[in-house]
Design a protein around this nucleic acid. Structure first.
Lengths: 157, 157
DNA sequence: AAGGCTGAGTTCATTTGTCAAACCCTGATA
DNA sequence: TATCAGGGTTTGACAAATGAACTCAGCCTT
Protein backbone atom coordinates (compact mmCIF):
# COMPACT_ATOMS: atom_id res chain seq x y z
CA UNK A 1 0.00 0.00 0.00
CA UNK A 2 3.11 2.19 0.11
CA UNK A 3 6.76 1.84 -0.79
CA UNK A 4 9.36 2.05 1.95
CA UNK A 5 10.53 5.53 0.98
CA UNK A 6 8.35 8.50 1.75
CA UNK A 7 6.54 6.58 4.45
CA UNK A 8 3.54 8.11 6.14
CA UNK A 9 4.32 8.71 9.79
CA UNK A 10 0.79 8.36 11.06
CA UNK A 11 -2.51 6.77 10.12
CA UNK A 12 -4.98 9.02 8.26
CA UNK A 13 -7.67 8.23 10.84
CA UNK A 14 -7.09 8.49 14.58
CA UNK A 15 -7.86 5.46 16.71
CA UNK A 16 -10.81 7.16 18.44
CA UNK A 17 -12.43 7.85 15.07
CA UNK A 18 -11.72 4.45 13.59
CA UNK A 19 -14.53 1.91 13.52
CA UNK A 20 -12.04 -0.94 13.34
CA UNK A 21 -10.18 0.22 16.41
CA UNK A 22 -13.44 0.59 18.30
CA UNK A 23 -14.63 -2.80 17.14
CA UNK A 24 -11.48 -4.31 18.60
CA UNK A 25 -12.52 -3.11 22.04
CA UNK A 26 -15.66 -5.20 21.66
CA UNK A 27 -14.07 -8.26 20.06
CA UNK A 28 -10.53 -8.18 21.34
CA UNK A 29 -9.45 -11.79 21.45
CA UNK A 30 -9.36 -15.14 19.74
CA UNK A 31 -11.90 -16.73 22.08
CA UNK A 32 -14.47 -14.06 21.41
CA UNK A 33 -14.12 -14.55 17.65
CA UNK A 34 -14.40 -18.32 17.98
CA UNK A 35 -17.52 -17.91 20.10
CA UNK A 36 -19.04 -15.55 17.55
CA UNK A 37 -18.25 -18.07 14.82
CA UNK A 38 -20.26 -20.68 16.70
CA UNK A 39 -23.13 -18.30 17.32
CA UNK A 40 -23.11 -17.47 13.62
CA UNK A 41 -23.82 -21.14 12.93
CA UNK A 42 -26.57 -21.12 15.53
CA UNK A 43 -24.59 -23.16 18.05
CA UNK A 44 -25.60 -21.31 21.19
CA UNK A 45 -25.48 -23.70 24.13
CA UNK A 46 -22.81 -23.24 26.71
CA UNK A 47 -21.60 -26.82 26.77
CA UNK A 48 -21.62 -27.17 22.98
CA UNK A 49 -19.41 -24.14 22.52
CA UNK A 50 -17.16 -25.20 25.35
CA UNK A 51 -16.62 -28.72 24.04
CA UNK A 52 -15.99 -27.62 20.49
CA UNK A 53 -13.48 -24.84 20.92
CA UNK A 54 -11.88 -26.07 24.13
CA UNK A 55 -12.30 -22.85 26.08
CA UNK A 56 -12.18 -22.93 29.89
CA UNK A 57 -15.64 -22.55 31.40
CA UNK A 58 -14.68 -19.50 33.40
CA UNK A 59 -13.45 -17.70 30.30
CA UNK A 60 -16.48 -18.73 28.25
CA UNK A 61 -18.76 -17.48 30.96
CA UNK A 62 -16.99 -14.11 31.06
CA UNK A 63 -16.92 -13.74 27.29
CA UNK A 64 -20.58 -14.58 26.83
CA UNK A 65 -21.53 -12.13 29.55
CA UNK A 66 -19.51 -9.46 27.76
CA UNK A 67 -21.18 -10.24 24.44
CA UNK A 68 -24.63 -9.96 26.03
CA UNK A 69 -23.53 -6.82 27.81
CA UNK A 70 -22.47 -5.19 24.59
CA UNK A 71 -25.59 -6.20 22.75
CA UNK A 72 -24.02 -8.70 20.36
CA UNK A 73 -25.91 -11.66 21.78
CA UNK A 74 -29.07 -12.42 23.72
CA UNK A 75 -29.57 -15.17 26.25
CA UNK A 76 -32.82 -16.84 25.27
CA UNK A 77 -34.83 -19.54 27.00
CA UNK A 78 -35.95 -22.52 24.95
CA UNK A 79 -37.34 -26.00 25.45
CA UNK A 80 -35.80 -29.07 23.83
CA UNK A 81 -38.46 -31.76 23.76
CA UNK A 82 -39.59 -32.90 27.18
CA UNK A 83 -36.68 -31.49 29.13
CA UNK A 84 -36.72 -28.45 31.27
CA UNK A 85 -36.24 -24.89 30.09
CA UNK A 86 -32.71 -24.15 29.00
CA UNK A 87 -30.87 -21.13 27.70
CA UNK A 88 -29.06 -20.48 24.47
CA UNK A 89 -27.06 -17.53 23.26
CA UNK A 90 -28.30 -16.04 20.00
CA UNK A 91 -26.78 -13.25 17.94
CA UNK A 92 -28.58 -9.93 17.88
CA UNK A 93 -28.77 -7.83 14.73
CA UNK A 94 -25.64 -6.05 15.89
CA UNK A 95 -23.91 -9.37 16.41
CA UNK A 96 -25.02 -10.70 13.04
CA UNK A 97 -23.36 -7.65 11.54
CA UNK A 98 -20.03 -9.31 12.29
CA UNK A 99 -20.79 -12.30 10.09
CA UNK A 100 -19.17 -10.69 7.03
CA UNK A 101 -16.05 -10.04 9.05
CA UNK A 102 -15.86 -13.70 10.04
CA UNK A 103 -16.46 -14.78 6.44
CA UNK A 104 -13.76 -12.40 5.19
CA UNK A 105 -11.37 -13.86 7.73
CA UNK A 106 -12.36 -17.36 6.66
CA UNK A 107 -11.69 -16.53 3.04
CA UNK A 108 -8.24 -15.23 3.92
CA UNK A 109 -7.44 -18.30 5.98
CA UNK A 110 -8.66 -20.63 3.26
CA UNK A 111 -6.54 -18.81 0.68
CA UNK A 112 -3.33 -18.28 2.63
CA UNK A 113 -3.27 -20.97 5.30
CA UNK A 114 -4.94 -23.89 3.53
CA UNK A 115 -4.95 -25.02 -0.08
CA UNK A 116 -7.27 -22.27 -1.26
CA UNK A 117 -10.38 -24.39 -0.97
CA UNK A 118 -13.01 -23.42 1.55
CA UNK A 119 -14.82 -25.98 3.67
CA UNK A 120 -17.93 -23.81 3.39
CA UNK A 121 -19.66 -22.89 0.14
CA UNK A 122 -21.50 -19.57 0.06
CA UNK A 123 -24.30 -19.08 -2.42
CA UNK A 124 -27.07 -16.62 -3.15
CA UNK A 125 -30.27 -17.99 -1.64
CA UNK A 126 -32.18 -16.41 -4.50
CA UNK A 127 -30.07 -16.98 -7.59
CA UNK A 128 -27.73 -19.78 -6.50
CA UNK A 129 -24.71 -17.77 -7.62
CA UNK A 130 -21.50 -18.20 -5.62
CA UNK A 131 -20.90 -15.42 -3.10
CA UNK A 132 -17.92 -13.98 -1.24
CA UNK A 133 -17.17 -11.20 1.14
CA UNK A 134 -14.96 -8.85 -0.84
CA UNK A 135 -14.31 -5.31 -1.94
CA UNK A 136 -17.21 -4.36 -4.15
CA UNK A 137 -19.20 -1.38 -5.39
CA UNK A 138 -21.71 -0.34 -2.75
CA UNK A 139 -24.61 -1.10 -5.03
CA UNK A 140 -23.42 -4.67 -5.58
CA UNK A 141 -23.49 -5.45 -1.84
CA UNK A 142 -26.05 -8.08 -0.84
CA UNK A 143 -27.89 -8.27 2.50
CA UNK A 144 -27.03 -11.17 4.78
CA UNK A 145 -30.44 -12.72 4.36
CA UNK A 146 -29.45 -13.60 0.81
CA UNK A 147 -26.66 -15.81 2.15
CA UNK A 148 -26.92 -19.60 2.14
CA UNK A 149 -23.97 -21.66 3.31
CA UNK A 150 -23.34 -25.35 2.93
CA UNK A 151 -20.36 -27.37 4.15
CA UNK A 152 -18.30 -28.81 1.34
CA UNK A 153 -17.90 -32.59 1.58
CA UNK A 154 -14.66 -34.49 1.62
CA UNK A 155 -12.33 -31.58 2.04
CA UNK A 156 -10.13 -31.86 5.07
CA UNK A 157 -7.38 -29.33 5.42
CA UNK B 1 -29.25 -17.34 11.62
CA UNK B 2 -31.34 -19.83 13.57
CA UNK B 3 -34.24 -19.69 15.96
CA UNK B 4 -33.71 -20.92 19.50
CA UNK B 5 -35.64 -24.16 18.99
CA UNK B 6 -34.10 -26.93 16.98
CA UNK B 7 -30.62 -25.60 17.62
CA UNK B 8 -27.65 -27.13 15.84
CA UNK B 9 -25.37 -28.73 18.39
CA UNK B 10 -22.16 -28.31 16.45
CA UNK B 11 -20.66 -26.14 13.74
CA UNK B 12 -20.86 -27.50 10.17
CA UNK B 13 -17.11 -27.07 9.76
CA UNK B 14 -14.57 -28.36 12.28
CA UNK B 15 -12.05 -25.91 13.66
CA UNK B 16 -9.13 -27.61 11.93
CA UNK B 17 -10.82 -27.19 8.55
CA UNK B 18 -11.97 -23.63 9.12
CA UNK B 19 -9.97 -20.84 7.56
CA UNK B 20 -11.28 -18.38 10.11
CA UNK B 21 -10.17 -20.51 13.03
CA UNK B 22 -6.74 -20.93 11.48
CA UNK B 23 -6.49 -17.24 10.75
CA UNK B 24 -7.07 -16.57 14.42
CA UNK B 25 -3.92 -18.47 15.27
CA UNK B 26 -2.00 -15.98 13.13
CA UNK B 27 -3.83 -12.83 14.24
CA UNK B 28 -5.03 -13.70 17.71
CA UNK B 29 -5.16 -10.40 19.54
CA UNK B 30 -6.11 -6.76 19.51
CA UNK B 31 -2.54 -5.50 19.30
CA UNK B 32 -1.81 -7.56 16.21
CA UNK B 33 -4.89 -6.17 14.47
CA UNK B 34 -3.99 -2.61 15.39
CA UNK B 35 -0.47 -3.13 14.07
CA UNK B 36 -1.83 -4.54 10.82
CA UNK B 37 -4.12 -1.55 10.52
CA UNK B 38 -1.11 0.74 10.70
CA UNK B 39 0.84 -1.32 8.21
CA UNK B 40 -2.16 -1.17 5.90
CA UNK B 41 -1.81 2.61 5.90
CA UNK B 42 1.90 2.29 5.25
CA UNK B 43 2.90 3.33 8.76
CA UNK B 44 5.74 0.89 9.30
CA UNK B 45 8.22 2.45 11.69
CA UNK B 46 8.57 0.99 15.13
CA UNK B 47 8.28 4.24 17.04
CA UNK B 48 5.39 5.54 14.93
CA UNK B 49 3.33 2.46 15.61
CA UNK B 50 4.25 2.44 19.26
CA UNK B 51 3.35 6.08 19.84
CA UNK B 52 0.06 5.85 18.00
CA UNK B 53 -1.48 2.75 19.48
CA UNK B 54 0.19 2.89 22.90
CA UNK B 55 1.58 -0.62 22.85
CA UNK B 56 4.47 -1.54 25.15
CA UNK B 57 7.72 -1.79 23.22
CA UNK B 58 8.35 -5.35 24.33
CA UNK B 59 4.98 -6.47 23.02
CA UNK B 60 5.35 -4.56 19.76
CA UNK B 61 8.72 -6.13 19.22
CA UNK B 62 7.33 -9.62 19.78
CA UNK B 63 4.29 -9.04 17.57
CA UNK B 64 6.27 -7.61 14.68
CA UNK B 65 8.67 -10.54 14.87
CA UNK B 66 5.70 -12.91 14.74
CA UNK B 67 4.22 -11.10 11.73
CA UNK B 68 7.53 -11.33 9.87
CA UNK B 69 7.87 -14.93 10.95
CA UNK B 70 4.49 -15.80 9.52
CA UNK B 71 5.09 -13.98 6.30
CA UNK B 72 2.57 -11.18 6.79
CA UNK B 73 5.20 -8.44 6.88
CA UNK B 74 8.76 -7.80 5.74
CA UNK B 75 11.38 -5.73 7.50
CA UNK B 76 12.82 -3.45 4.85
CA UNK B 77 15.72 -1.02 5.03
CA UNK B 78 15.16 2.50 3.77
CA UNK B 79 16.78 5.93 3.91
CA UNK B 80 14.89 9.04 4.91
CA UNK B 81 16.76 12.01 3.47
CA UNK B 82 20.22 12.45 4.92
CA UNK B 83 19.72 10.24 7.93
CA UNK B 84 21.14 6.81 8.39
CA UNK B 85 19.62 3.57 7.15
CA UNK B 86 16.50 2.59 9.03
CA UNK B 87 14.01 -0.23 8.91
CA UNK B 88 10.31 -0.28 8.27
CA UNK B 89 7.77 -3.07 8.35
CA UNK B 90 5.82 -3.49 5.14
CA UNK B 91 2.93 -5.84 4.43
CA UNK B 92 3.58 -8.77 2.14
CA UNK B 93 0.97 -9.97 -0.32
CA UNK B 94 -0.27 -12.39 2.30
CA UNK B 95 -0.52 -9.54 4.79
CA UNK B 96 -2.30 -7.27 2.33
CA UNK B 97 -4.86 -10.02 1.99
CA UNK B 98 -6.11 -9.06 5.43
CA UNK B 99 -7.00 -5.53 4.35
CA UNK B 100 -10.58 -6.50 3.45
CA UNK B 101 -10.99 -8.02 6.88
CA UNK B 102 -9.88 -4.81 8.53
CA UNK B 103 -12.16 -2.77 6.28
CA UNK B 104 -15.10 -5.06 7.06
CA UNK B 105 -14.41 -4.64 10.74
CA UNK B 106 -14.19 -0.88 10.26
CA UNK B 107 -17.53 -0.83 8.50
CA UNK B 108 -19.12 -2.75 11.36
CA UNK B 109 -17.61 -0.44 13.94
CA UNK B 110 -18.69 2.66 12.04
CA UNK B 111 -22.23 1.31 11.74
CA UNK B 112 -22.76 -0.11 15.22
CA UNK B 113 -20.36 1.76 17.49
CA UNK B 114 -20.37 5.22 15.93
CA UNK B 115 -23.01 7.25 14.13
CA UNK B 116 -22.87 5.21 10.98
CA UNK B 117 -20.47 7.57 9.25
CA UNK B 118 -17.02 6.34 8.39
CA UNK B 119 -13.94 8.47 8.83
CA UNK B 120 -12.53 6.86 5.70
CA UNK B 121 -14.10 7.05 2.26
CA UNK B 122 -13.46 4.11 -0.07
CA UNK B 123 -13.75 4.63 -3.81
CA UNK B 124 -12.91 2.80 -7.01
CA UNK B 125 -9.61 4.15 -8.30
CA UNK B 126 -10.86 3.62 -11.82
CA UNK B 127 -14.50 4.69 -11.79
CA UNK B 128 -14.72 6.79 -8.63
CA UNK B 129 -17.71 4.75 -7.42
CA UNK B 130 -18.06 4.26 -3.66
CA UNK B 131 -16.82 0.87 -2.49
CA UNK B 132 -17.38 -1.38 0.52
CA UNK B 133 -16.32 -4.75 1.77
CA UNK B 134 -19.51 -6.79 1.75
CA UNK B 135 -21.23 -9.96 0.75
CA UNK B 136 -21.31 -9.94 -3.02
CA UNK B 137 -21.43 -12.22 -6.06
CA UNK B 138 -17.96 -13.57 -6.78
CA UNK B 139 -17.85 -11.90 -10.15
CA UNK B 140 -18.56 -8.49 -8.60
CA UNK B 141 -15.51 -8.69 -6.33
CA UNK B 142 -12.83 -6.10 -7.07
CA UNK B 143 -9.08 -6.54 -6.56
CA UNK B 144 -7.45 -4.45 -3.84
CA UNK B 145 -5.49 -2.41 -6.34
CA UNK B 146 -8.76 -0.79 -7.37
CA UNK B 147 -9.15 0.64 -3.87
CA UNK B 148 -8.52 4.29 -3.10
CA UNK B 149 -9.15 5.59 0.38
CA UNK B 150 -9.38 9.15 1.61
CA UNK B 151 -10.00 10.38 5.16
CA UNK B 152 -13.28 12.22 5.52
CA UNK B 153 -12.87 15.73 6.91
CA UNK B 154 -14.52 17.17 9.95
CA UNK B 155 -16.02 13.96 11.29
CA UNK B 156 -15.00 13.15 14.81
CA UNK B 157 -16.75 10.23 16.39
C1' DA C 1 38.87 10.33 18.60
C1' DA C 2 35.42 11.29 22.35
C1' DG C 3 31.03 12.13 23.50
C1' DG C 4 26.23 12.47 22.67
C1' DC C 5 21.92 11.52 20.41
C1' DT C 6 18.36 8.48 18.54
C1' DG C 7 15.75 4.59 16.98
C1' DA C 8 15.01 0.05 18.04
C1' DG C 9 15.04 -2.98 20.76
C1' DT C 10 15.89 -6.28 25.54
C1' DT C 11 15.50 -7.13 30.49
C1' DC C 12 13.15 -7.20 34.66
C1' DA C 13 9.82 -6.82 38.53
C1' DT C 14 4.98 -6.33 39.02
C1' DT C 15 0.31 -6.76 37.83
C1' DT C 16 -3.14 -8.96 35.25
C1' DG C 17 -5.28 -12.75 32.70
C1' DT C 18 -5.56 -17.72 31.63
C1' DC C 19 -6.05 -22.43 32.80
C1' DA C 20 -7.95 -26.82 34.74
C1' DA C 21 -10.00 -28.82 38.50
C1' DA C 22 -13.10 -28.63 42.13
C1' DC C 23 -17.10 -26.90 43.83
C1' DC C 24 -22.07 -24.93 43.78
C1' DC C 25 -26.86 -23.91 42.44
C1' DT C 26 -31.23 -24.67 40.28
C1' DG C 27 -35.05 -26.99 38.47
C1' DA C 28 -36.81 -31.47 36.75
C1' DT C 29 -37.35 -36.20 37.61
C1' DA C 30 -37.65 -40.80 40.45
C1' DT D 1 -36.72 -36.44 49.60
C1' DA D 2 -32.75 -37.62 47.01
C1' DT D 3 -30.64 -37.43 42.80
C1' DC D 4 -29.00 -35.77 38.42
C1' DA D 5 -27.28 -32.69 34.79
C1' DG D 6 -26.56 -28.28 32.68
C1' DG D 7 -24.62 -24.13 33.50
C1' DG D 8 -22.15 -21.88 35.75
C1' DT D 9 -18.48 -19.68 39.94
C1' DT D 10 -14.35 -20.17 42.77
C1' DT D 11 -9.69 -21.37 43.47
C1' DG D 12 -4.84 -21.41 43.19
C1' DA D 13 -0.97 -22.41 39.99
C1' DC D 14 0.87 -20.68 35.90
C1' DA D 15 1.68 -17.62 31.71
C1' DA D 16 1.44 -13.21 29.49
C1' DA D 17 1.16 -8.18 29.49
C1' DT D 18 2.84 -3.98 31.37
C1' DG D 19 5.98 0.00 31.93
C1' DA D 20 10.33 1.51 33.51
C1' DA D 21 15.07 1.02 33.14
C1' DC D 22 18.74 -0.51 30.54
C1' DT D 23 21.46 -1.77 26.11
C1' DC D 24 23.38 -1.29 21.69
C1' DA D 25 24.79 0.40 17.19
C1' DG D 26 25.41 4.05 13.94
C1' DC D 27 25.72 8.64 12.77
C1' DC D 28 26.78 13.61 14.07
C1' DT D 29 29.22 17.08 16.32
C1' DT D 30 33.26 18.83 18.26
Amino acid sequence: MSNPDNLPRKAPVALEDCGAARALDVVPDRWTWLILRHLMYGVGRFADIQDDIGIPKSVLSARLAALVDQGLADKQPYRDGTARTRHAYVLTRKGRGLVPVILALMHWGDTHLKDGESALALTDRRTGAPLRVALTPEDAALPLRRLRYRPVQGRTG
